[in-house]
């Protein structure tokens, strides 16, 4: 288990993290979401020993991370960084050696990863001569080349074209299948939803939601049912117990069901009006969940007042 436990960090009076904690199981992928400046990068840098937490710790296999165990983590910083004048192959070899591989193993691993990420022909090029997309691949290769036990990637998908996104996603899924816990941050929530076993949403220095996307949906207060009844008169559902109408437009009705309300009673009421062309629980997208989760409580209250 990779455990982030009660991380606190402040710079002067500015509290960046106020008790951030989550767990990532081996072989699972954790999507780390949050608005800009929410503290994702700081959390990852604390894990890598690049920033010191005021309180809390990060553990791998039950032990706090130290210099030695960090060497077995593959890391991709938000600010990409490579030696611009060093050749791709040498650079990967160097990073592999810094992670503890001996010279021969490092050279083999560098060659292998350059090949797997489609950089085989650019092995002898200097990094500064590569396109941005290819530099990104080198950066990823630098994180993977040491066969890490854990992957921590800060915004790995930013700046990639769709083909690059797919290649990276495949590489990460493969690492996952190999039993590596993967943590990555991203603003591309569709990707997070597609790839991740669990998601954590960070807002104002706290985890406001963690769990699988499914769990987050279930946790969402109330459940929304969409029913399309073309022949119904307006207000047809108002009488069903525990149901409030969110919106109604020419029979296309969104209903909010309170805890314990019977969806079958709604269906019966709908059938009484005539034809039912659509009846389904509406799946909240991660984007909606995210908006809900990160919304400032003060602002949310204000919005509800306006609505009322």
């Amino acid at each position: 288990m990779l455990e982030f436990d009660g991380l606190h960090k402040s710079y002067g009076d500015h509290h960046v993290l106020e008790g951030v904690g989550f767990t990532v199981a081996p072989g699972s992928m954790f999507g780390f979401c949050g608005s800009n400046g929410a503290g994702k990068t700081t959390t990852m840098r604390i894990a890598m020993g690049l920033a010191r937490a005021d309180a809390g710790e990060v553990r791998w296999r039950g032990r706090p991370l130290d210099e030695e165990s960090r060497r077995r983590i593959g890391y991709m910083p938000e600010e990409r960084g490579l030696y611009p004048k060093m050749r791709v192959g040498e650079q990967l070899t160097y990073f592999a050696r810094l992670h503890g591989l001996d010279a021969a193993a490092a050279a083999r691993a560098a060659e292998e990863w350059a090949g797997r990420l489609g950089l085989g022909e650019r092995r002898r090029s200097r990094v500064e001569e590569l396109s941005l997309g290819n530099q990104q691949r080198v950066q990823l290769a630098a994180a993977l080349v040491s066969r890490p036990e854990v992957l921590i990637l800060d915004e790995p998908f930013s700046g990639l074209d769709p083909v690059g996104v797919d290649a990276l996603a495949d590489a990460l899924l493969e690492q996952c299948r190999g039993g590596v816990p993967v943590v990555f941050s991203s603003h591309q929530l569709d990707l997070v939803e597609r790839l991740c076993d669990s998601v954590g949403i960070l807002a104002r220095g706290r985890m406001v939601a963690t769990g699988t996307v499914e769990e987050l949906r279930r946790r969402e207060s109330g459940r929304v049912l969409r029913v399309v009844v073309p022949d119904a008169a307006p207000g047809w559902a108002g009488a069903v117990p525990g149901v409030s109408v969110v919106s109604e437009q020419a029979g296309d009705t969104l209903l909010d069901l309170a805890e314990g309300a019977d969806d079958q009673a709604v269906l019966a009421a709908a059938l009484r009006t005539g034809r039912v062309t659509h009846f389904a629980w509406r799946q909240a997208t991660l984007v909606e969940l995210f908006r809900e989760a990160v919304a400032d409580p003060a602002q949310q209250a204000a919005r509800q007042e306006v609505a009322a």
Partner: peptide, 17 residues
Amino acid sequence: VEEKASRVVELLLATMR
């Protein structure tokens, strides 16, 4: 300065002091 300017220093300091 090269290491700072190219930000590679962050990757390096993840493996060494």
